[in-house]
Design a protein around this nucleic acid. Structure first.
Lengths: 140, 140
DNA sequence: CTAACTGCAAAATGTTTGCTCAATA
DNA sequence: TATTGAGCAAACATTTTGCAGTTAG
């Protein structure tokens, strides 16, 4: 788990400000157990009694992504989602019935596959994304 | 590569018709080397001199997906793409500079990872998606 | 003939932009 | 008080829907 005050210090040292919106959104991601979309962030804020315009939410996730605080990912629906950018390499499993998402820590994965792909495609591979789809215990 | 006349026979036997739009779209996918979005299908049709409304394109990919002819996938941008559903399990590599996509045949992949995920999450795993991101030879 | 299909316009999502006003440091 | 950030409305892009008219078989 990333340290909020460390993040705030980094943002401040970049000459940026800590506003109510920014702090609330960082806090939400610090507590989040799964990636969140802009819409989900907006709804969570509303649930917290904080009213923040959706434009601000979009701009804020862009900002936090540029600052390296958040990482953008796609779960296969066409909605952009975000999560804290952590050092531990992990992947996701999505329930095809209730859309629940869980993160799976898995360092050193798909090494064998990456070698094969690298050799066959002649691409310089920089990153990969692995998602599993299935039925969660609650939906079985 | 799937056989077009076999697909057409299957659609006919389901009580559905083979229209100009349907046939043109199936033909496009038979020739496609990478997954296509609705917009790309529309553009390709236009380039072939076939004028088909975008609503029809959207309905057609839905239909072909329901018929098991196409498979929907996401490349990480938030655009739905489609490709022929083939039996050989394959994945994709995407160039982060020019967005070129290549398919990589890779049967029996991520087996080790699937076992780990299955055990930890208690999900019943049905499918997975693996994408590599990198720089293609032409962009290096 | 008739159910499957098409096109058009309009709506529904998700996201971005321009502009002006507000608030942090 | 200077510059970053917020809010609003409107534009945008992709996808969906309702409905009236068309066509394959």
């Amino acid at each position: 788990m990333l340290n909020i005050s460390e993040i705030i210090r980094r943002i401040r040292s970049g000459g940026y400000r800590i506003t109510k919106a920014r702090e609330a959104i960082i806090t939400i991601f610090a507590k989040a157990k799964a990636p969140l979309s802009a819409g989900e962030i907006e709804k969570t804020l509303k649930g917290m009694g904080v009213h923040i315009n959706k434009t601000t939410v979009y701009r804020e996730v862009d900002f936090l992504k540029a600052e390296g605080v958040l990482k953008e990912l796609s779960l296969g629906d066409n909605i952009r989602r975000y999560e804290f950018r952590t050092d531990n390499h992990h992947h996701h499993i999505i329930c095809i019935k209730c859309n629940k998402v869980e993160c799976i820590d898995m360092p050193e994965c798909v090494e064998k596959e990456e070698k094969i792909v690298s050799k066959r495609s002649r691409f310089k591979i920089i990153d990969h994304s692995l998602k599993f789809y299935g039925v969660c215990p609650g939906c079985m």
